[in-house]
Every structure is written in structure tokens, then in C-alpha cells.
């Protein structure tokens, strides 16, 4: 394999990884954001305490979060196949990544929303705001910096998970690292792949921090 081939392979791998990670983050938030809000709202100190519902959600989330990602990946293969038609490759990996991301994102959203000062919530209620208005205009709006920090953490974690998916032919950079570096002992390719992953993570963290700082009005 020539240098150009390697470069092309790495470029494709990077592209696949980015697709996997971004799609999983997106779907993860489509599921995790409402779930996290629901958790914070139904908590005993929340906007509308519903202890029974909170307990059920809490248990389900704890169970899904305690399954190691690699096991989850294999465990839900039939489900993945039912949704995307196959259980390997870049697109297929989005399914287990999303399933793993939702409960984890929900927890982060929950904790971000719970950080919002209760006094501000009370002020909004005292002004006659509907609960839904309180959620959108107070809870989510006031928590936005913390939520964005959460997005950065979520993307980073999913990036790590996506590399693991390489073991079952998941595609992307992790797949390359495992196939060449681990199975074929081509250490150089493995190192280069890992360097690319490190760079991606750095870039992501940098952009994430920049955006959340820019949007934070709590610093004078």
C-alpha cells in the first residue's frame, strides 16, 4: 500500500467517523434532550414532581448505562439489522451509538437543567408562565452554556465509542486502527490513525469550549 492509498484510507476513515459521530449525536439529542428534561421536571424538586415516573425512567437509564458499549453493540445487532438492513458498517453503527448515547445525554441534560436557579423558575411561575414556557424560556435558555458543554462531552464520548465499533467492522478510524494496527501489526498506520483521532478530539473540544464561552452571559 502506497502513501496515497494510506492517505485516502485515512481520509475516508475520518469522513466515516465524523458521519457516525455527528449522526449519533444528533439522534442521541433528539432522544436524550426531551428525556433529560422529563427527568429534571419529574424529579421531586422539579417543576412537576412525578416520583413514580421518575423512578421508572431512572432505573431504565441506569440499566442501559451500565451495559458496556461493546456488549450493547452485539446485543442489539438484531435490532440494528431490523432498522438499517445490516448490522455492520458505518451507517449500522449509528444505531448502537445512538442507543448508548441517549441515556448518557439524558443524564447530562438532567444535571444541566437542575443547575438552573430555582428562584428564577419561581419568578417565571409568579409571572403566570405556563410550565412549557418555563421549560423552553427559563430552564433550557438559562442552562444553555452547561448544555453546550454537555454536547462537547457527548461528541467526545461517542467518538471514543465509535472507535470501539471497529471490532465488529463498524467502519471509520477505529476500524482502520484495529484492522491494520491490531490484526496486521502495521503499527505505523495504527499510530497515524490514533493521532488523527487525537486531533479530532482536540479540535472538537476547542470548538465546543469556544462556542459555549461565547454564548455565556454570566461572565461580565
Amino acid at each position: 500500500m502506497g502513501l496515497t492509498d494510506i492517505a485516502k484510507m485515512l481520509a475516508d476513515g475520518t469522513k466515516d467517523t465524523l458521519i457516525m459521530v455527528l449522526l449519533s449525536t444528533l439522534f442521541g439529542y433528539i432522544g436524550g434532550l426531551p428525556l433529560g428534561v422529563l427527568l429534571s421536571v419529574t424529579d421531586e424538586n422539579g417543576l412537576k414532581p412525578m416520583p413514580a415516573l421518575y423512578m421508572v425512567l431512572d432505573i431504565i437509564i441506569n440499566i442501559t448505562r451500565s451495559i458496556p458499549f461493546l456488549i450493547l453493540l452485539i446485543l442489539i445487532q438484531p435490532f440494528t439489522k431490523a432498522i438499517v438492513g445490516k448490522s455492520y458498517g458505518t451507517v449500522a453503527t449509528v444505531v448502537p451509538l445512538t442507543v448508548a448515547a441517549i441515556p448518557f445525554i439524558a443524564r447530562m441534560v438532567e444535571s444541566s437543567v437542575k443547575e438552573v436557579d430555582k428562584g428564577v423558575v419561581e419568578a417565571a411561575l409568579s409571572l403566570g408562565a405556563k410550565k412549557f414556557t418555563v421549560i423552553t424560556k427559563v430552564l433550557l435558555a438559562e442552562a444553555r452554556t452547561s448544555l453546550l458543554v454537555g454536547v462537547t462531552i457527548a461528541v467526545g464520548t461517542i467518538l471514543g465509542y465509535s472507535a470501539m465499533a471497529g471490532i465488529v467492522g463498524g467502519g471509520g478510524l477505529g476500524d482502520i486502527a484495529i484492522r491494520y494496527g491490531y490484526y496486521r501489526y502495521e503499527t505505523e498506520i495504527m499510530i497515524v490513525t490514533v493521532v488523527v483521532l487525537v486531533l479530532l478530539m482536540q479540535l472538537l473540544q476547542w470548538v465546543g469550549t469556544l462556542i459555549s464561552k461565547k454564548l455565556d452571559r454570566r461572565r461580565g
Binding site: 428564577v120 419561581e122 435558555a141 438559562e142 452571559r217
Partner: peptide, 10 residues
């Protein structure tokens, strides 16, 4: 309120 309770992000 004692703690004003303004929206900090607005």
C-alpha cells in the same frame, strides 16, 4: 425577590 431572580442569560 431578595435574590432578584433575573434571567442571567438575557
Amino acid at each position: 425577590f431578595q435574590q432578584f431572580n433575573l434571567l442571567m442569560q438575557r
